[in-house]
Write a protein that binds this DNA or RNA. Structure first.
Lengths: 207, 207, 207, 207
DNA sequence: TATGAATGAGACTTCATTCAT
DNA sequence: TATGAATGAAGTCTCATTCAT
């Protein structure tokens, strides 16, 4: 995954330095993008938050859009890495699904702002970068799909494979909903409440 | 509802003309916004598509953002009006819910591009206009919430009121998902399939 | 003097109507020019204050600058007419001068805003119109010059003719000063005070 | 005094460069403003005269009005500095006053165009900047007031303090008159003539 | 004669990107 | 390698003036 950053060209030769600086760059940019959106954030502002000159910044990227990709890539990997970690352990499918949903929703909650950013600015990426991010999203969805597939095989879940794919996607958007519809969701429910209600609904619908 | 347009000031005195031209303007702008997004569409391009001079365009609005509001308002009302119409008739709650979901998903399908636009560019509106759009969205959600509430009263649905609200929101995002995740959804399912599967899942989860 | 208005072409044939309407136009424009200055006042605003359509307004003038000329001309004539009136009667030169200064200062005071306008926006006129206004101003100055000349002949005033011209101009600018330096003048002196002090200084300097 | 320039924000970090470029900018702008007035001069023209791109120009200022302030500030300081310098030396009040008037009128003569500009465009400044310029003007007036006050104490001048303030203001406007009424003043008098006549009138009026 | 919608040139301003130092 | 001043294209918006009705 780390190699994804290399998709973006740089003047700098030292690869370690690139990665270190880009990490700092992402942190600076994310903060500003969350606050004001991609289009309304200027490269000057990013450079200032980054603590470097404009020239230096442009040693690590080629265009402003590169920064957005770096940011999206970073955000997505945060979710993916954390979720991957939580997935270990030998449990039955229902338990596994409950845990995965819980972990996923908790992750979303912890990076709400990033979630918003990820789904609102993706369209500003060029085709190639956008596809990269989308495919990353699909990998994530696959995690849920696989758990459900296991449950179907174990006869725990009583749906077909085609429905499983939709349920997996439903889980994804219901997670995002916690961030997107915060005015409704977070005003009326605690995160635990929300997780319990959604999980029960999902399990119920496929059992 | 028509009065919402009056939120936006105009140099033109003839109110009918304002409405006519704004309708044309919305049509022109929607097309471009869908293609390239709000920020990447220039007012000059809109004026050209609008078929009038820049000056004329600015006789009907005050700022570029006004155009976005007009567009969002228009899109939202399309959905709302159509859904409202489909809601008449005396059926039991389950039947009503099935029909409402079906109608809503069909509407979303018929204005996919607009849906995308509506949910991606809302954040570019100023606070006031954004709130206006959000509250309109909440009204829509309420429609589903009310049907479910009726089902609960009739003992058709076996959930509490707090869960009902979440289900209503789930329906909304699952509709939007048809547009947003078209690469997944529309590649793998026909609209009818999608509607059937999602409806069954929902009914199942609350019965 | 009335013919000065004819310097400006019009589509309208009825000359009386022209004069009537132009008077109204001047009143509308003066108010706005005083408030916001010539450049920051739009023709649309003038038309609105004027109570006519833009098309109608342009029947009475050719360009926006024409309005400024009409206004300057009007203001200047107000002063001139009033001063002319006050000049009648048989008095000795010193008495005459005292009275003329008094009358002039009182007039300036009564049209302070206009005075400001007249001297700040004149430069926005084209050469011809500006010269017209300037020559009108010189006529006014001549009034004072003539009184002083009379006093010199009567041996009341002990200066030469060349000095008289300067004194006349001094009187003019000291009058304007009441309007221009209002923060100093009107904060520290009543109009009567101011008139008395300035008149005494002037008389003293030439006796 | 130099700090007055800091009232205006800049993108440039090198403060010396700011001062240098702003000086160049003022020179370019003054020339154009004198020729055509503030409103009729475009930023593009200023940039061209400035010898830099529009973008570069806007690195040194925030708005077009800032340029006007810079210009007014510069002009005023030219007068103020020169007059301050001429003020040294131990002379009696009458001698001092004669010299101060002479120096002031000579300065005005040497920067006639600037004087015109200063007093015609001040109103285009925003409140804060306008007040800044006005208060600078009042400081200048104070110089004359103080000399006269000294003469009153020394019994050289036979007027009261309230009259002294008016005389000081008269001197200011009579200086400006040399520039404003150039068609009258400079056509009929040499500068030396003008100075002599005005000075004698003033001294006469207060002795 | 009156209306006011439409024109379109041009104004001010921003900002991603480059490059001399 | 780092700096940040400079570029210039492009953006949004205004408004004096015209002309079909």
């Amino acid at each position: 995954m780390a190699s994804s950053k290399l998709r973006i060209a740089s003047n700098i030769k030292n690869e370690e330095l690139i990665n270190l600086r880009r990490q700092e760059l992402v942190n600076a940019a994310v903060k500003l993008f969350v606050e004001k959106g991609f289009h309304k954030t200027t490269v000057r502002e990013i450079a200032k938050e980054f603590g470097m000159s404009m020239g230096a910044l442009y040693d690590y990227i080629r265009t402003k859009e590169d920064i957005l990709f770096l940011v999206c890539d970073h955000i997505f990997k945060s979710v993916s890495d954390k979720l991957q970690v939580s997935m270990v352990g030998e449990k039955d499918a229902k338990e596994k699904l409950r845990n995965a949903i819980r972990d996923y929703f908790i992750i979303i909650d912890s990076i709400q702002d990033y979630t918003l950013l990820l789904y609102q600015e993706t369209k500003s990426l060029n085709r190639k970068d956008r596809n990269y991010v989308l495919s990353a999203e699909m990998e994530l969805t696959k995690i849920f799909e696989n758990i459900i597939a296991q449950g179907i095989k174990e006869k725990t879940f009583n749906i077909d494979k085609r429905t499983a794919k939709i349920v997996a996607n439903n889980i994804m958007v219901q997670g995002q909903m916690w961030a997107f519809r915060r005015w409704v969701a977070q005003k009326n429910y605690s995160l635990n409440n929300y997780i319990k209600i959604q999980t029960d609904l999902i399990i119920n619908s496929i059992s």
